[in-house]
Design a protein around this nucleic acid. Structure first.
Lengths: 247, 247
DNA sequence: TCAAAAGTGTTTCCCCTACACCCATGG
DNA sequence: CCATGGGTGTAGGGGAAACACTTTTGA
């Protein structure tokens, strides 16, 4: 798929003529599936829930469910997070719509996928997780997932890795106040590679989106770290240089 | 929306408990809408078709239609292009899924949008355009569109402008053999700004994705231009430098 | 005083930008 | 021979990358 790739034609046979009334039939089950990211123990993790019914009973899947008639698709994604995971405040962004015929053995289900991000500490607090059994898995050690959910996670991760490079999404994984080292760790964990400390700090501070709160936090028996906060209320794009056209 | 923006919570009221069988009801009409781009007369244009039925009879809309039960969503988009526009070979990429409740006055319709690109010359040849009346509009001079189709076009254009900077999508608007000036014009027309000729040519040739065919084409009474072709079969990503991590 | 993480500058190099003139052809 | 677009090179500047030591604290 590769970041929104081209659709290539498979054998497109001729089909019956289109129906006269466009909304009268051919209705479809539409589901939402959410890839919820967090950072815990210096690892990027994804939340999975265990299926309690056939098919794939007992297998891990992404939290999600069907879109109801009285809610928008976005609302469905938020509701599923609330219901199944007990989370209200997350960053949520639509990912891709998977519309193949054979995605679900029960029949045709179109899935609109999302990815979401929470700060682990914030999640810990308000997670009753009543009914479903849920579990965080490191993105590089996922269990066997049902349906095509492995693909969805892969795609979400790719999108996330792209986006941290030119937007401030990574901040969604951190608490309101954080140290520069924590921010750097977040980037390293998402990207799966080390980052130079001095260059990282310089770049981040140059962006002008961090406010030094003046507070400090002593973590162990070493020098205390300054606490910063993110100045923007929304996720922003960094100044980006195009290859063809200078920004 | 801004290139896949965050979904913010509106009032999420509590709702009835979820159904036991997930695919049994709450089925939805799902449509595809395609933003088809081309370049003609040094302008970026979008194909619109005229509605022949209520609501919005006589208004311009994107080519599209409902997804049938026996086809994937991608196939539906391709079929609509074939049926309504008579085009078989296009670059097609999924854009975004619009899932709000009030998009369509007839009732709830979830729309999976796509954008597509054709070379104008190639289109000219095999365009019977039998039934529907279709017309190309410059992207900056669109008529009043029905539904939320104006938004979809805006979003498609934004995506296209982003993508030409780090992928080879722009080539999809050109014939198989083209001059560097034609390629530059394509970029200028998409981006809506001028580009330096020498820098552009150097960058493009440096990418190593152009093959000098050795042929030339005399356009008028001036020096003939070399014809190039694109070496890759797929749309590729350019070498991209991240802000945080060197590529 | 030691361990452990926080914090800080500089140099080098490459790539991007800006910019103007000759070339080949048809009329 | 002239008008028109095709084609080419370079110098300067800015930002990215590489790199190591001092500071602050708690134990």
């Amino acid at each position: 798929m590769d970041n929104g790739a081209a659709i290539t034609r498979r054998g497109l046979t001729t089909r019956p003529p289109p129906s006269a009334s466009p909304v009268s039939f051919d209705r479809h089950a539409v589901a939402v599936d959410v890839v919820l990211f967090t950072i815990q123990d210096d690892a990027l993790k994804v939340l999975m829930v265990k299926r309690t019914a056939a098919p794939f009973r007992g297998r891990w899947v992404l939290p999600g469910g069907v879109v109801r008639s009285d809610e928008s698709v976005d609302e469905a994604a938020l509701r599923e997070l609330q219901d199944k995971v007990g989370i209200a405040t997350v960053y949520l962004e639509q990912l891709y719509t998977f519309g193949d015929l054979d995605r679900d053995p029960r029949g045709r289900v179109i899935s609109v996928s999302y990815y979401a991000m929470v700060d682990w500490g914030h999640f810990q607090l308000k997670a009753p997780r009543k009914l479903v059994s849920a579990r965080w898995f490191p993105v590089n050690r996922l269990p066997n997932l049902a349906f095509d959910h492995r693909n969805i996670v892969t795609y979400a991760l790719e999108r996330l890795r792209n986006k941290v490079n030119y937007t401030s999404v990574a901040f969604q994984l951190l608490p309101q106040r954080f140290t520069l080292t924590e921010l750097q760790r977040a980037y390293e964990v998402i990207l799966g590679q080390r980052v130079d400390k001095r260059n990282f700090r310089r770049k981040m501070l140059q962006l002008g989106i961090l406010r030094n709160t003046g507070e400090q936090r002593a973590e162990g028996r070493q020098r205390p770290a300054r606490l910063y906060s993110f100045t923007e209320t929304r996720v922003i794009k960094f100044q980006e240089k195009g290859i063809i056209v200078p920004f």
